[in-house]
Amino acid sequence: MDEGTKTIIDKLIKKHKPGENAVVSIFQDVQEQQGYLSEDAIRYVSEKLEIPVSRAFSVATFYSAFSLTPLGRNRVHVCLGTACHIKGADNIAGRISRQLKIKPGETTGDRKFSLHKVRCLGCCALAPVVKVNDDTYAGVSQDQVVSVLEKYR
């Protein structure tokens, strides 16, 4: 692992209270800064927190918020919760899938986008909802979603 990544992780570890419980918070920060949890990062965090690698790997695979492969620069989340489902979220997910030529859970070859299905974003009144990074798009149609994606190219 390069020294730069080590320094970043060291800083993140210092921010949190030491001990096994810090692993989730540290992984969240690493995920946000690096876009994924690399093998080196997981091994380094486990070494620093003095927890078994198996334990750290278990945590890393448990939460869907963590990815073990690099994600795209823009993370597209399509809500498939009950309200969004009723409002045709499947069609929207399909349209994005065709547009970006990737399946949910995958990343485009140019690393610009990754597509994720999520169950509920907690804003059912805005259904159907698509979230790109931290921006939420409410009541989107299939056509609108294409122009939304263009903004992030």
Partner: peptide
């Protein structure tokens, strides 16, 4: 040895 653990959910 702590070589094993559960993965995924």
């Amino acid at each position: 040895a702590c070589a094993l653990d559960f993965v995924h959910k």
